[in-house]
Simulated scan of single mutants.
Amino acid sequence: MAIAMTTGYSAQTEGARLCIDAASDWALTCVEQLPHQNHHVLIDYGAADGGTAVGLWNQVLDHLHTQQPNAHLTLIGNDLPSNDNIALAANLALQIPRPPKPTVLVSARSFYEPSVAPNSVSFGFSATAMHWLSESPGPLHNHTHVLASGDADAMQRFTAQALKDWTAILELRSRELQPGGRLLTVNLSRDSEGRYLGHNGGETRNVHDELHRIWRGLADEEVISEEQYRNGTILNFYKSPEEFMAPLKDASSAPYRNGLRLVDERTVHVRCPYRQRWNTDGDTAAFATGLMATIRSWSRHSFANAAGDAAADAVYQRLEQRIAEAPSDWSLDYVEHHQMMEKLA
Rank of each mutant, 00 (worst) to 15 (best):
L332V: 08
L332Q: 14
S302W: 11
A53R: 01
D281I: 05
L332A: 13
T29E: 15
E176P: 01
A48Y: 08
T267V: 07
L73Q: 15
T52F: 02
D329Y: 09
A314W: 11
A246I: 09
E242N: 05
L163S: 14
V186E: 00
N258K: 07
Q156K: 11
Y9F: 14
Q317G: 11
T204P: 09
D153G: 04
E336R: 02
L248G: 01
E265M: 10
N231R: 14
D79F: 04
N305L: 04
Q161W: 01
A162Q: 04
N58M: 09
P81Y: 08
Q12S: 05
A11C: 12
T13P: 00
E171Y: 12
A293Y: 06
L184G: 01
R109P: 00
E242D: 14
V207T: 07
Y334C: 00
Q339L: 09
A87R: 07
R175S: 06
S122K: 11
A47R: 01
G308H: 12
Q59N: 12
G282D: 13
G201T: 07
L88G: 01
R257M: 10
L188E: 13
D79C: 05
A71D: 10
I76L: 13
T52H: 12
L80Q: 14
R257Y: 02
Q67W: 04
W298M: 06
V207R: 00
V146Y: 03
A246W: 13
A219W: 13
R318Q: 13
H72G: 10
T284V: 06
L140Y: 01
P118H: 07
P97S: 08
H338E: 13
S253H: 11
A154G: 13
L133I: 08
H301L: 12
G50S: 09
S126W: 02
A129F: 06
T284E: 15
S240G: 11
R173C: 02
G194E: 13
D264I: 05
E265Q: 11
L188S: 14
P179F: 03
V41L: 08
L73K: 14
G15D: 06
H65G: 04
Y9P: 00
A326F: 04
V54F: 12
S253I: 08
R157K: 12
L34R: 15
D209L: 09
S136D: 13
V106I: 07
H131L: 13
N279W: 05
T233A: 09
H269S: 08
L64D: 15
P35C: 04
S115F: 04
A4P: 02
A293W: 14
L188K: 15
N91L: 05
V186L: 01
F125Q: 08
T66H: 06
A154F: 10
S10W: 01
G198M: 08
Y112C: 03
W132D: 12
I295Q: 00
V41P: 01
A129W: 01
I96S: 08
G259T: 07
R213A: 09
D21F: 03
G181Q: 10
N85E: 15
S134N: 11
I224K: 01
N187D: 03
D333N: 10
A48I: 04
L34A: 12
S82W: 03
L28H: 06
R17T: 06
G259N: 15
A117M: 06
A154P: 15
D281S: 05
H212V: 03
N83G: 05
